[in-house]
């Protein structure tokens, strides 16, 4: 960790990495569940949704951070929401330009980024108190962590539910797809299983540490 530049005070890079993994928005903070479940039926959808959210997160945190001394305390949430909604509208129209099929696949869930607790949470907890650069880095880290989380769920669901990854068939024509995984219940199951895996790994690591200290 000492190799990372800008370690002291909190350290932008450390914070960036923290958002990416240690405080991953999907698995650790469990924020923004609606898109996590709804659009992770395939890896490509998951990644596009993640990147769209990252953009909204970074852009609105930057804007909010710039305006943090101007916004009156009493109406701050309303102001944040209007700023976020503006950037979501930008993304919404942007995706329509880039790929219409993607836009149809994601549907109303792009607009629902507004209601993603992650974005408002970051705005309130970080952007409102830090200078623009720091909050953009923090937001990008969180956004990419979110993308990673979505990909880990979407990838598994696509792999099991359709036998493919990024639309490329992996198991050959004889694979019997486990369709329930790309249906709504699959979202719950895969997310639950990931959380279980993390809990197991953590338990094993803690156990190992305890054994080490006892032995030494």
């Amino acid at each position: 960790m000492n190799l990372l530049p800008g370690k002291n005070p909190p350290g932008n890079w450390a914070e960036f990495l923290e958002g990416l993994w240690q405080r991953n928005p999907v698995f650790v903070m469990v924020l923004g569940m609606c898109p996590t479940m709804a659009i992770t039926t395939s890896a490509i959808n998951a990644i596009s949704m993640g990147l769209a959210t990252t953009f909204v997160l970074a852009a609105s945190c930057w804007m909010i951070s710039l305006m943090r001394h101007v916004i009156p305390k009493e109406v701050r949430i309303a102001t944040y929401i209007v700023i976020i909604a503006t950037f979501v509208t930008v993304v919404d129209y942007g995706i329509q330009v880039i790929s219409l099929s993607l836009y149809e696949a994601l549907g109303a869930y792009i607009k629902l980024i507004v209601a993603n607790c992650l974005v408002l949470g970051r705005a309130e907890a970080h952007a409102a108190r830090n200078p623009p650069m720091a909050s953009v880095i923090n937001a990008t880290g969180m956004g990419l962590g979110f993308t990673l989380g979505l990909f880990m769920i979407g990838g598994v669901r696509e792999l099991i539910g359709m036998g493919s990854l990024f639309g490329i068939s992996l198991f050959g024509p004889h694979y019997q797809p486990w369709v329930v995984m790309i249906l709504p219940p699959g979202g719950f199951f895969v997310m639950g299983l990931w959380l279980m895996v993390f809990a197991l790994v953590r338990a094993r690591r803690d156990h190992g540490l305890a054994a080490q200290t006892q032995g030494g």
Partner: peptide, 22 residues
């Protein structure tokens, strides 16, 4: 099981509920 405590368990229950609603 310890690993299933908390959110993981809730998600599994929700999954089964969702399966039932299907």
């Amino acid at each position: 099981p310890n690993a299933m405590m908390g959110t993981a368990l809730t998600l599994m229950l929700a999954g089964i509920l969702s399966l039932a609603f299907m």
